[in-house]
Computed example of a mutant assay.
Amino acid sequence: MTNAIAIAGRQIGADFPPYIIAEMSANHNGSLDAACAIIDRAKAAGADAIKIQTYTPDTLTLKSDLPDFQITDGLWEGRTLYDLYQWAHTPWDWHKPMFDHARQADITIFSSPFDTTAVDLLEDLNAPAYKIASFEAVDLALIRYAAATGKPMIISTGMADQDEIGEAIAAARDGGCRELAILHCVSGYPAPAEDYNLRTLADMADRFGVVTGLSDHTLDNVTAVASVALGAALIEKHFTLDRSGGGPDDSFSLEPAQLEALCRDSRTVWQAMGEVDYGRKSSEIGNVKFRRSLYFVKDLKAGDVVAADAVRSVRPGYGIAPRYLDQIVGTTLRRDVAACSPVLMDDLAVSVLSQA
């Protein structure tokens, strides 16, 4: 299994904090200023990267009103595909100022190309990685073309079955990609949490041997945060300044406070996962003294035999461990002891350790 990839110097894998991608998509709503503001807010929230989409309506579909090209349900009901992509696309002449702005803000920016001309544009901008969208995961020629750049690649797997995922991975490898990640994804907008079947993440990592993450289209952060505990090394969520902004993707996107919470909480989960460790933790050291131990509950003299009613297991923990109680009962004292004093090995004429 591939343990890690790197994008713009940031290591991504199970041994590193989850890589958080804020997907701008169409949430600029036709404003370059809004696009730059989204970049700034993603950085402020703690995201590792901002991702955009590089297409025009003509690179995605045909300008047709025929039934095949009509959207008849869902968020975009009543539009044609061409109209939707005309509304949602990021103009190509915005790309350079957006890349420049992201670099000034010190946040990684890359894109999903939807055809070879988009890859060419992004190469001119020195994009550090490529993301293949779920709907394009079956476009093996596009995957090979992007892979030939030698850049790291992320492939979303929404709607793809095992064979199709395998074919996409093979195309990426054949094209020259050496750093590859795949994202478990449900291509519903929004998607219900129960559709995600997060246990699939571990199987994907084992089955395909690549870094694995989650592209999450649910309306909150619960699914994404939970995915970290199941091995997600990357998380992608749509991001907007205002969920009520009226754009194509606003309604199922995170707002700044939610993105900040995702960045914080997913990294907390990753830290909490740690490793298998039964040892005493640093935060517990100060509380060891409050564990139970054995204490005398009567005044006794040297030479007395310790009866069962003379000792108890109580807090604090300055005496010997309660597991020695049976061995202590019936032993003889070497010295006087007072009630409420801890039972110590030196109090006893015979070491109970040799009897344990």
Rank of each mutant, 00 (worst) to 15 (best):
A45H: 06
F208W: 12
D249V: 02
V186E: 04
T90V: 03
A127T: 15
D299F: 13
T212H: 10
I21V: 15
Q86S: 11
V210A: 02
V314G: 01
Y196D: 03
S282R: 13
M153F: 11
K151H: 07
D161F: 15
V329L: 08
R264G: 02
A37G: 01
V329A: 02
D336R: 10
V269E: 01
A224T: 08
V276P: 08
N27P: 04
I132F: 06
N3W: 11
A160Q: 11
S227V: 11
N27Q: 06
R41A: 14
A338K: 15
P97I: 09
A310E: 01
D309W: 10
L353G: 00
S31H: 10
L254V: 04
I39V: 15
M1N: 10
K63A: 05
T54S: 06
K96G: 01
A148R: 07
A308N: 13
D265V: 08
G279A: 14
A146I: 04
A191D: 04
A35S: 02
E164L: 14
I143K: 03
W87L: 06
A191N: 07
L198I: 00
S282N: 10
A137G: 15
P316C: 02
V314T: 12
M273D: 05
L121S: 01
I38V: 08
L325W: 15
F114T: 01
A102Y: 03
Y85R: 06
I20L: 07
V222R: 14
A202N: 06
A349F: 12
R280P: 05
E136W: 05
D216R: 02
F208V: 02
E179L: 10
D220G: 12
K43G: 03
H89T: 11
D206N: 15
S251N: 09
I7L: 03
G158T: 11
P316N: 03
S244L: 08
D65K: 11
Q271C: 10
G247T: 04
D326E: 09
L60N: 03
A232I: 07
L75Y: 12
S64Y: 09
D242C: 07
P57W: 09
T90N: 01
G231I: 02
A272N: 11
I39F: 12
Y145R: 10
L75F: 12
A308E: 14
I285G: 08
S251A: 14
D216Y: 03
I235Q: 00
L142C: 03
S111V: 00
P248C: 07
S283T: 15
F16E: 14
C177E: 03
D304A: 09
F114W: 07
Q258T: 13
M1Y: 12
P256T: 04
L344F: 12
S25T: 13
I5C: 03
E179F: 10
I132E: 00
A129W: 07
A8H: 08
V269W: 11
E255T: 04
K43N: 10
P17F: 06
V350E: 11
D265Q: 14
